[in-house]
Design a protein around this nucleic acid. Structure first.
Length: 562
RNA sequence: UGGGGUGUAGCCAAGUGGUAAGGCAGCGGCCUUUGGAGCCGCCAUUCCCAGGUUCGAAUCCUGGCACCCCAGCCA
């Protein structure tokens, strides 16, 4: 599929840089996650942007772990991030980098700044630094340690590095301007002392660089041309530029865009972590999670996520994308590519009283009406069937076209049937339907063209495969999950019905051999994916990816008062 | 009340002085052996507001207003 032509303000900037040969005609981006959690759909937007831009310009894009804080980072997250990025962006061909590999170079550069009187060791503790930083409207106060001699600073920095001082007792600070209206420029911290093992460096270091100090250096080392990040870093750009200029090293251009927000969804790493740790979901890859791993397990295709990211655009405006836009992108993809199948989720037995006992027929069915090359298959038919409970109403509401006493309906790829009798148990619950079929109306025969109001799906009772099907709904009930009542938080907006497990589903035989990860459209029900963890051939477990558009549900809803 | 940003339809988003693209959602209709898909049509006399410049302004100027970000030794 050709890449759709896109233009956004970032691509405009790059086009103009190419015009002026600003970076010798190179385009080199990077995606720099911190390995402190799983990637989510917001990261997917950034991945698609950064890797997409590189692809569009025959450039390069690095996956770079911004692993400068050993207190929060773990190898498990590194592994999951590599997996997710490759799923979305393709083979990285080894372009995987770690900020921690640059720690020595960063340290040497810090020494350079100290030598030039542009950085100093400060003995103020965290609390004192906060108090002397000033406020939004008042300037800060200079640290009493700001004017130490270069030699003393050099000595102290060296001893910090060698572990002579306890956590938090000293920092290395850039000497910029305590009165700057931009708080980030009020002598920002470059190094803090943290005696903690790093997931890759072990105990090699006990001082770790802060984001502001490290990030531009990482970009510079990798010869990045355009360093694309989210809006909250806009205030940090003057610092990014300051460090690079003070060092006189290669200077990429930072560009900021608005991060993704999705309605009915939470996309903060802290909150996603909380959902996992407090077991509100089964894990980072729970199919209800907005993580890349979650969507993958749910059954979303990488292509649908890429298309989604392309279609929502890139700008600097804070926005909240309607989840319906995401759902539309997966439906669009699966409509074109998913094989169709018959599956009855909530079975209701139907006996065709005039159909010969013991007889079985094989009915041809199309695998995908949108794609002739998908071919066809054969489905067994017999005297006893299952249909969807929802496809029968003893007292049909207005505009209800499906089966009810005395009415006719077509069985997909089969015959037209008529409901003759409703069988109930002692409690009055419907247990089965007695119907008659019209032998002249087998699909494909001339009499089959008779108009009936609707066509329903079914599965032959004798041949049905039993399965578990998991119906997922949105995790949060509120468009803005953070909009909670006084004293409550986003958890109070969790949807108690976000998962419904159906254990007695009846599938057409072909589905029994589905491999984990296989996707189908269950006709009239939605798109489903064999669960990658729990589904086994012979004992399938399906996840509902997304429903089909349901016009009847809308009509029925409108008919209800209120 | 400091600094940095952003305002175009319900949600996104193009538009860069020449008379408001497109997608999602919604609404009508056609078609249909999936109430799916598809197709057709409707959906901003107006671009946060007020002035100004201009033959002509969403685009330029002036002044307002609203919202977001920044006072971690997180990123």
């Amino acid at each position: 599929m050709p890449t759709p032509e896109r233009n956004d303000f970032i691509r405009d900037i790059i086009a103009s840089d190419l015009q002026t040969s600003k970076f010798e005609g190179r385009v080199h981006t990077r995606f720099p996650p911190e390995p402190n959690g799983y990637l989510h759909i917001g990261h997917a937007k950034s991945i698609q942007l950064n890797f997409g831009i590189a692809r569009d310009h025959n450039g390069l894009c690095n996956l770079r772990f911004d692993d400068t804080n050993p207190e929060k980072e773990e190898q498990e997250y590194v592994d999951s991030i590599v997996r997710d990025v490759e799923w979305l962006a393709g083979d990285l061909k080894g372009r995987i980098y770690f900020a921690s590999d640059y720690f020595r170079q960063m340290y040497d550069w810090a020494v350079t700044l100290v030598r030039e009187g542009k950085a100093y060791v400060c003995d103020l503790n965290a609390d004192e630094i906060r108090r002397t930083r000033g406020t939004l409207t008042e300037p800060g106060k200079e640290s009493p340690y700001r004017n130490r001699s270069i030699d003393e600073n050099l000595d102290l920095l060296d001893r910090m590095r060698r572990g002579e001082f306890p956590d938090g007792s000293k920092t290395l600070r850039a000497k910029i301007d305590m009165a700057s209206p931009n708080i980030n420029l009020r002598d920002p911290i470059m190094y803090r002392i943290v005696h903690e093992a790093h997931h890759r460096q072990g105990d090699a270091w006990c001082i770790y660089p802060t984001y502001d100090w490290a990030h531009g250096l990482e970009d510079s080392i990798e010869r990045i041309t355009h360093s694309i990040c989210t809006l909250e870093f806009e205030n940090h750009r003057p610092l990014y530029d300051w460090f690079l200029d003070a060092l006189g090293i290669y200077h990429p251009q930072q560009i900021e865009f608005a991060r993704l927000n999705l309605s009915y969804t939470v996309l903060s790493k802290r909150k996603l972590l909380q959902l996992v740790q407090e077991r509100h979901v089964s894990g980072w890859d729970d199919p209800r999670m907005p993580t890349v791993a979650g969507y993958r397990r749910r059954g979303y295709t990488a292509e649908s996520i890429r298309v989604f990211c392309d279609r929502i655009g890139v700008s600097k405006k804070d926005s909240i994308i309607d989840v319906a836009t995401l759902e539309w992108s997966i439906r669009e993809d699966l409509n074109a590519h998913a094989r169709r199948a018959m599956a009855v989720l909530r079975p209701l037995k139907v006996v065709l009283t005039n159909y010969p006992e013991g007889q079985t027929e094989e009915l041809p069915a199309v695998n995908n009406p949108e794609d002739e090359s998908a071919g066809s298959r054969v489905i067994p038919f017999g005297r006893e069937l299952y249909i969807e409970q929802d496809d029968f109403r003893e007292v049909p509401p207005p505009k209800y076209y499906r089966l009810s006493p005395g009415t006719e309906v077509r069985l997909r790829y089969g015959y037209i049937i008529k409901c003759e009798k409703v069988i109930k148990d002692a409690s009055g619950a419907i247990t089965e339907l007695h119907c008659t079929y019209d032998p002249e109306t087998r699909s494909g025969s001339p009499a089959a063209n008779r108009k009936v109001k609707s066509t329903i799906h079914w599965v032959s009772a004798k041949h049905a495969v039993n399965a578990e099907v998991r119906l997922y709904d949105r995790l949060f009930m509120k468009e803005d999950p953070n909009d909670a009542e006084e004293g409550k938080d986003f958890l109070s907006n969790l949807n108690p019905n976000s998962l419904e497990v159906l254990r007695y589903c009846k599938l057409e035989p072909m589905l029994g051999s589905a491999a984990p990860g296989d996707r189908f459209q269950f006709e009239r029900m939605g798109y489903f994916c064999a669960d990658s963890a729990d589904s086994k051939p012979g004992a399938p477990v399906f996840n509902r990816i997304v429903t089909l558009k349901d016009t009847w549900a809308k009509i029925e809803q409108k008919g209800k008062p209120g």
